[in-house]
């Protein structure tokens, strides 16, 4: 599914550029959930932006492929059409663009890029209704501009709404648990789990192990200074929660 080899990336312009991802190697096979944990500044969010093609992040070495396709050469929208999806840590407010208009435009753009037919208006509305209900999102909210006036929890749920609408095959959740109370967390986790399938994979970026009780990972990686310094099964997350990162970092040094 997703294969990252010796990836090196910098943030910033020319002389100010800072290397945040440092010869990172990581593989997430189809059907699996991998958690990326690590202290602040380890490069977790940067990794998510490099994978989705945000401008300002420059890849200076290595490769990343999704199902064998080199994604680093692609525009963000092409990566999306290939199935990449990032649930943002801080979803932006976009005044004037209603949620439904946005998601339908995105869906049809992706379909067009893949050479598929557009979704019909009734099919879209039906699908939207079902998913909104499942996520306990008010239908009125979907008519409002994207994220404008939404609470932190509502924004995160709206990310998952988009994910469920667009049905990507590689899901990146960047700190999706932050700002969620326990009920919202369960709703969000149920949404993600509903998407789990043998041909999809999930990368869960998180600080805390709490989310991993609900979205159970197959593998946990510890990211530090742009590298994976330790990988293990879900118990590694519990260990980190208990003992912090210091031990792992010292052992790797």
């Amino acid at each position: 599914m997703l294969k990252i080899e010796n990836l090196t990336a910098t943030v910033g312009e020319a002389e100010e550029a800072k290397q945040i991802i440092n010869r990172l190697t990581l593989e997430v096979p189809a059907g699996e959930v991998h958690a990326i944990m690590g202290p602040n500044g380890a490069g977790k969010s940067t990794l998510s932006y490099v994978l989705t093609g945000r401008s300002g992040y420059e890849v200076t070495g290595g490769s990343a492929t999704l199902n064998g396709d080199d994604i680093l050469e692609m525009e963000p929208e092409e990566r999306a059409a290939k199935g990449m999806f990032l649930s943002f840590q801080y979803p932006v407010e976009i005044p004037g663009v209603p949620v439904m208009t946005f998601v339908r435009t995105a869906m049809n753009s992706q379909r067009k890029l893949r050479g598929e037919e557009e979704i019909s208006a009734p099919d879209f509305i039906k699908k939207s209704r079902e998913i909104a209900k499942q996520l306990k999102l008010d239908a009125e909210m979907l008519k409002r501009p994207v994220n404008v006036g939404f609470s932190g929890g509502e924004k995160k749920r709206l990310e998952i709404y988009q994910m469920m609408m667009l049905e990507p095959n590689f899901l990146i959740l960047d700190e999706t648990d932050s700002g969620l109370d326990i009920d919202a967390l369960k709703i969000v986790a149920d949404g993600v789990n509903a998407l789990r399938s043998p041909d999809r994979a999930v990368m869960v970026i998180t600080h805390y192990q709490r989310l991993l009780d609900y979205i159970v990972p197959d593998t946990v990686h510890v990211l530090y200074r742009g590298q994976v310094i330790k990988s293990g099964d879900k118990d590694l997350a519990l260990e980190l929660e208990k003992n912090g990162y210091t031990g792992v970092i010292d052992a790797a040094a």
Binding site: R54, E77, A80, M84, I94, P95, T101, T105, M107
Partner: peptide, 22 residues
Amino acid sequence: HLFYLMSRGIDEKMARGLLVKA
């Protein structure tokens, strides 16, 4: 804003159009 729209599959020209119109 531009990146948010593009990361969902909307190309740059269309994304700009949406934002300006909005």
